[in-house]
Design a protein around this nucleic acid. Structure first.
Lengths: 233, 233
DNA sequence: GGCGCGACTTGATAATTATCAAGTCGGAGG
DNA sequence: CCTCCGACTTGATAATTATCAAGTCGCGCC
C-alpha cells in the first residue's frame, strides 16, 4: 500500500475506536487497498474469511443463494465492512458480496483483525458496537420480511429512502430495480407490479426516477414503525 | 440477591470472559434474580432497555408484532441473554420476550453492563463474540425465510432439532405448535397442513410427538445447507 | 368432576407471490 | 454506429400462504 493511501486509511471510521495507533499500523501492514469495477464478486458464501473487507468508496450488495434462488440481504456503502462475525470466529462467510458500482475496498487480513481485537480494548468495543448495530438492523429486516406484505415493504422503503435523502419527495433509485426487488424479498416482476399498485397513492416512477407526490397518503398505506424502519442510532 | 444465589450467578457463562471479578460483583450488586411463571411477558417492544436479561433456567420466546400480526423471532434457553444490542446503545427493545416455561431470569441493570463494557476488555470481547454469534444466527434465519418455502423450513427445522437431540429420529416438540408456526413464519393452519404434507416423507406426528422414520428421505426434500442450517460455532 | 378456554385440525376461499413467456428498451462493447 | 444482452414490463397461470369458519380435544381452574 502506498504511503499516502496508508495515511488516508489510518483515518477511516473503522479504526476510530482503536486505543493504540500501533494496532492500526499492524492491521494496515498486511492490508491491500483494492479498486474493483462494478459487477465483480468480492467474496463468496462458504469461503473461509481470510480478510475483513472495509468499503472506502462505492456500493456493495450482500447476497446469497440457495438451490436456484438468490436474495439480497443488504446494500452497503462507505464505512461499512464485511464480514466481522465471520472474521472474529474464523468461520466461512454466510453471504457473498458484489460491487454494485466501482468500489475501493480495504482488505485487512483476518488474523491481524483478531490480534487487534485481542490486544486493544477500544477496538474490541468498537467491533462490539458495529455488531450490535448490524444485529439491530437484521432484527428490523427480519420483522419487515415476516410481518409485512411486499407492497408494504416497498412503500416503507420508499419513505425511508426519501427521508434519508432530505425528504424532497423525489429521488433516483440508487441501484437497479432487480437489486431492489431482491432486497425487498420479491421477484422483479412483483416489484414492477407493486410500483404500479402505488400509482393510486401518488407515487410516480419513470425508469430510476421516483416521485412521492403525497407522502402522507403513502404513509397511510405503509404504516411506518420505528421498531421496523427507524434509524437505529 | 441472596448470598448463595450470588455465588451461583458469578459462575454463569455470561460473566465468563470478564477479566476483573470486581466487575462481575459490580454488575451483580444491583441485579435481581427473578423467577417467572410461564406465559409472562418479560419485556415489550419499544420499551427502554433498563436491564439486560440473562436466562438462568427455562425457555423464552422472542417475538414482535406489527399491526395485527405477530411473529416469533427466536426461542432462547439457559445461557442466552436479551437484549445486548439495545442495552449497549441504550435504545428501546426491538423485540418482546415471553416465558414459555417457568423461568429464572437474572436482570442486570443496563448501566452496570455498559460500565463493565467500558472498563473491562475481556467483557467487551465476550459481548462482541455474543453479538457476532447472534448476528450469524440472524443471517441464517433471514436466508431461511427468504430462500425457502414454509414446507422446506419445517423439514429443515425437524432435521436440525433431531440432530441437536441425539439423532434418535424421535422427539417431543419443545413448545406449542402455535409457537413453532410463528417461529417458522407461517400461520398455525399452514403448519398443520405442512406436517400433513410430510407424511409421504415418513414423518409421523401425534400431538407433540414427532417421529422421523427415514431421515434420508426427509433430507432429500429439505436440502439442508450449512450456511443456512449449520451450527454456527 | 365438570366447565370453559385455547390449541389444533380441517374445509373453503381470498390474497400474495412465484414462475413462465414474450416483448420492449437502453446501455455497453465491438 | 450497430448489435447483442440484460433490465424491465406486461400477460397468464401455478404455487404458496393467509384468513375465516367450524369443530374437536385436552388441560387448567373452580
Amino acid at each position: 500500500m502506498r504511503s499516502q493511501d496508508k495515511e488516508e486509511m489510518r483515518r477511516i471510521g473503522f479504526f476510530r475506536g482503536v486505543d493504540d495507533p500501533e494496532q492500526v499500523d499492524a492491521m494496515l501492514r498486511g492490508a491491500f487497498l483494492q479498486r474493483f469495477p462494478a459487477h465483480v464478486e468480492l467474496i463468496q458464501t462458504g469461503e473461509p474469511a481470510d480478510f475483513l473487507h472495509v468499503i472506502v468508496d462505492g456500493t456493495v450488495e450482500m447476497f446469497s443463494g440457495h438451490r436456484d434462488r438468490e436474495t439480497t440481504l443488504g446494500v452497503s456503502g462507505p464505512g461499512d465492512s464485511f464480514i466481522l462475525a465471520a472474521v472474529l470466529f474464523d468461520r466461512p462467510y454466510l453471504q457473498s458480496a458484489r460491487a454494485l458500482t466501482a468500489a475501493r475496498i480495504l482488505m485487512v487480513p483476518a488474523e491481524a483483525v483478531r490480534q487487534a481485537f485481542a490486544a486493544d480494548a477500544g477496538f474490541a468495543r468498537s467491533v462490539a458496537e458495529s455488531l450490535a448495530l448490524a444485529y439491530r438492523g437484521l432484527i428490523m429486516e427480519l420483522k419487515n420480511q415476516k410481518l409485512r406484505s411486499g407492497l408494504e415493504r416497498l412503500a416503507n422503503w420508499l419513505l425511508a429512502h426519501d427521508a434519508a435523502n432530505g425528504s424532497k419527495g423525489r429521488f433516483d433509485l440508487p441501484f437497479d430495480k432487480k437489486v431492489l426487488a431482491a432486497r425487498l424479498g420479491m421477484a422483479p416482476e412483483v416489484l414492477s407490479r407493486s410500483f404500479a399498485a402505488l400509482v393510486p397513492y401518488e407515487v410516480v416512477v419513470q425508469g430510476p426516477s421516483v416521485v412521492i407526490r403525497d407522502p402522507a397518503v403513502l404513509r397511510k398505506l405503509a404504516q411506518p414503525c420505528t421498531t421496523i424502519d427507524g434509524a437505529t442510532l
